[in-house]
Design a protein around this nucleic acid. Sequence first.
DNA 1: ATTATGACATGACAAAAGTCATCTTTTTGG
DNA 2: CCAAAAAGATGACTTTTGTCATGTCATAAT
Lengths: 238, 238
Amino acid sequence: MAKVEFNIACTLCEHLKDSLFNGLSPEELNRINLHKTCISYKKGQNIFYEGTRPTGLYCMNGGKVKVYKNNVQGKEYIIYIAKPGDFLGYRALLGEEYYAASATVLEDAKICFITKDHFFEVLQKNPAFMKRVVKAICHEMGIMEEKMAELAHKSVRERLAASLLMLKESYGMEGEGSTLIDIALSREDLASIVGTATETVIRLLSEFKSEGLVSFEGKKIRVLEPRKLAKQADLIIG
Amino acid sequence: MAKVEFNIACTLCEHLKDSLFNGLSPEELNRINLHKTCISYKKGQNIFYEGTRPTGLYCMNGGKVKVYKNNVQGKEYIIYIAKPGDFLGYRALLGEEYYAASATVLEDAKICFITKDHFFEVLQKNPAFMKRVVKAICHEMGIMEEKMAELAHKSVRERLAASLLMLKESYGMEGEGSTLIDIALSREDLASIVGTATETVIRLLSEFKSEGLVSFEGKKIRVLEPRKLAKQADLIIG
DNA sequence: ATTATGACATGACAAAAGTCATCTTTTTGG
DNA sequence: CCAAAAAGATGACTTTTGTCATGTCATAAT
């Protein structure tokens, strides 16, 4: 479980195109490159804990990381699953607060770390970059507003259907019509995404399966009938 | 129900101290002042609708406004209640998206409107202001993360207790130990804040009342036992 | 190969919360 | 000032969901 360092030049990073860093000049990318540390993490390793102070920004280069909160009784709610190209921990960093959530590796990950000072330097010297970051944050907020309204008034069945569709969109396998959800999620993790008990997810998933809406392929789920699932999620009327 | 214009110089605004505009130079404030329109709204009037495009920023000068989403079945979830000094509609503006929520006046309000271009001009010419805005947005995101985790795993009873405490903190009357929640909220609105049915809120509130945790004063609620309520909200263990 | 461990699955049951109907009280508009 | 409408309250009932117990299966460690 030892952390292993690696190094990839930011200018050559295959995920640059999916990242907010896309659009920075080669000079800016090189400055970040000089001040970053890249580490490989194994499944189950922790990146940061709720309640601690951020010292810099994480940038995903490979794998998947869940960002989650635990309540007093130990129940987990997964706020977000970070994939390559995503920033991690930027909210607490820019808000100058403690982390409000924890982050743990779901699938073996490669993550670069840029110290706070260097990130802020690039941010403040490049207004266009700042604007892109602000835009992305506001977009994220819109998604959170949507999720709160869903949690407030949708049934677990509707939320599970909506979560499966969201996962298909965000983490769908390239090709194959993108119907395979390309994350090896446990039922427990899926329950933490939906905000329900593990047993409930298991029951509903097998209902969806027997209704022909999804199929299971190894540890992964394939969405067979996105439109019918959208109807279950109450996203389509009719 | 006609909208009535009024005008107050930004430099003299009594809510400037509570606003993100606090810290701007008199010149910047005057520029905003020159390009703003201030309107008085009556209770029940709409400020903007979900799905429309923002054309500028609203800045609260008086009253209360609810920001909410309606789901397909017409159930409402209140994301935020804006009070004097607050910005309104900045998320969609900065995210360059449609409004993800609607805004309606809860208590007669005075609201100033600054067009997008002028707001962006001040924002881009003043990096310190930009930084404050980003910090505030990120703080808001942290609150939303907390709320999502609450909605996912807390009971309605716990959420109602937590909402009452939050309302007391954010909208508590000055003086009086700030125990009176100074918004005339209907049971229906309170249900939309908690994310539950109106009947459930009514029942739980009268339970809280008979347990001596709260009392009703006219249309308003007084929190009598914040610590016991915090225990109900599962914020304190013991 | 065998055991231990964790993930998945299912049943039984209880608790929480939503829905619908009805009634009372308060507020508002004419 | 009165009628109509809206808000608040309460009971009866149903549905949804969580919890606990138990069992199976796959995987990993020894």
